[in-house]
Each structure stands twice: as C-alpha cells, then as structure tokens.
C-alpha cells in the first residue's frame, strides 16, 4: 500500500473528526439542539408578530433565525475547536500525531473542516426551521451572500478557536474560556437580545470591536426582506477577516502540540502519569 494523496488525507481526517463529534452526544446537543430550542422558546415567548414585538419592525423569528444560526456556527467552530484541540492535547493525542508523518496542517484542516461542516448542518437546520415553521424570509438571489458570509464567519471563528486552544493550558480552562467569551459577546452582539437603536455607547463600541456582531448583522442582512440584492456587507466581512488574521497570529504564537506541564496534574484520560 502506498501513502494517500494529501487531499485524500485531508478528507480522511475531516471524516475522522466528524465521527468523533457525533460520538460525543453532549457536544452535538450544545451545538445543534440548544440553539434550535432557543429559537422555539423565543418565538413562543415573544410571539411572531412584527407590530409591538420586542424586536420592532420585523418578526421575532426574522430576527432570531439568522442570529441563532450565526451563534450555532460560532459554537460549532470556535467552542468545539477550542475544546477538542485542548482535550486532545491534554490526552497526548496531538503529541502522537506529531510523531507520525501526517503533516500537522492536515490534522488542523481535519479539525477545521469537520467544524465547518457541522456549522453547515447547524445553519441549514436553523434556517430551515425558521423558513418552514416561522415564515422567515429567504431569497435565492441572496443565497451567495449567505454562503459567503458563512464561509468568512466560520473560518474566522475556527481560527479563533485554534487560538483559544493555544492560550488555554487545559481542556477544562479552554471550555470555560470559550463559554466565558462567546456568551457575553452574544448578549452585546444582537444575538440573544435586539439592542435596538440606542444601546449604551460603551456596549455599542465593544460590540463593534468584537467579531460576532459583524457576523450576525452580515448574515441577517443576507436574510432580510428589506436588504438590496446582493446583500453583502463587505465592511462587516472585512472586520471578520481582520479577526481571522488576529486568530492566526495568536495561534501561530501560542499553539503547542505537547501537553502543557502542570495542567490537570499531567494525567492522561487513561490515568497514567506522563513522564518528564
């Protein structure tokens, strides 16, 4: 047998990571099911009428569908990649990979590719539910804008996930850091709450500095009944690209393949102590 070609190796590792994702039900629940539950709950709580609803001139479903779709893409990429990579580093799996002829970037491509694929699924489920159940607007002419926004946004959050795995020492701190960053960010980024036209200025500024709001607004534009085709918000995508670059630099600077000494007592999940 001879070695597989590099594209075949990338595909193989996307499939491997994808299998791992589905075999850990808790991750699948938080990524896929939870945002769907939130959409159903929000619509049930706020009704689905544009007049007098908490979100103003559009229906709550029209507001929440793109927002929660973006949120689930964020957790499919950013949260999952940060937790998975740091867990696998802690367990010494990344160290094993480094001892094989597999190019490191192929392993990373597997992790990113799988996360982006899960993001596609999350997005389709969310948008599908919004369109079918809640009469959310979807226009064929704006599909390229949705696809482009998704690609730019998911790559941005995937890169930030790798960066976070580089910054976090242990899997448990990666998990805590991921949630402690994405959840407050979602609150100030028009994801869980429509901030309306006059939020406090410092919140506005903070939200504009961070990537999630731009991702959400660009995606909402691509789904809006009022936007003009092609509905691509280039300036927002530009901010996401900037954050992608920040994530790439941080990942390059901080990411390590070997377990971090002292993190979680340096035990593997199999319970053996690692040696110095």
């Amino acid at each position: 047998m001879t070695r597989r070609s590099t594209p075949a190796l990338v595909l193989l590792h996307i499939r491997a990571q994808n299998r791992l994702f589905w075999r850990v039900p808790i991750g699948a629940f938080f990524t896929l099911a939870l945002p769907v539950i939130m959409l159903v709950l929000f619509v049930a709580l706020f009704g689905n009428e544009p007049e007098g609803s908490v979100v103003g001139t559009i229906t709550p479903a029209q507001f929440y569908t793109p927002a929660l779709a973006v949120f689930s893409v964020g957790s499919a990429t950013y949260t999952n990649i940060a937790i998975n990579l740091s867990t696998r580093r802690e367990e010494g799996i990344l160290r094993r990979v480094r001892g094989t002829p597999l190019p490191p970037w192929v392993y990373m491509a597997g992790a990113v590719g799988s996360a982006v694929w899960i993001g596609v699924i999350a997005l389709v489920v969310m948008v599908g539910l919004g369109v079918i159940a809640y009469d959310v607007n979807l226009e064929v002419a704006k599909l390229p804008a949705m696809a482009l926004t998704f690609v730019v946004g998911s790559m941005c959050f995937a890169m930030l996930g790798i960066a976070l795995a580089g910054v976090a020492k242990s899997a448990s701190s990666a998990s805590a850091l991921a949630n402690a960053t994405i959840l407050p960010m979602a609150f100030i980024s028009n994801i869980f709450i429509n901030l309306g036209t006059n939020p406090p200025e410092w919140l506005q500024v903070l939200g504009d500095l961070l990537p999630l709001r731009h991702f959400g607004l660009a995606f909402a534009e691509a789904m809006s009944p009022f936007s003009e085709t092609p509905a691509i918000l280039w300036d927002r995508l530009g901010v996401l690209l900037l954050w992608t670059a920040v994530g790439a630099l941080l990942a390059r600077w901080r990411f390590r393949w070997d377990p971090v000494p002292g993190a979680n007592g340096r035990t593997t999940r199999r319970g053996r102590r690692t040696t110095a």
Binding site: A16, G92, I93, R95, G99, T268, T275
Partner: peptide
C-alpha cells in the same frame, strides 16, 4: 520510525 510513547493518548471514541 515508529513511536510507542507512554504519554501519547488514543482517540477513545474511535
């Protein structure tokens, strides 16, 4: 080379 490393984990779910 082949490495059998004491501290290298294996993906448990595969």
């Amino acid at each position: 080379i082949g490495i059998v490393l004491q501290s290298a984990g294996i993906d448990r779910e595969l």
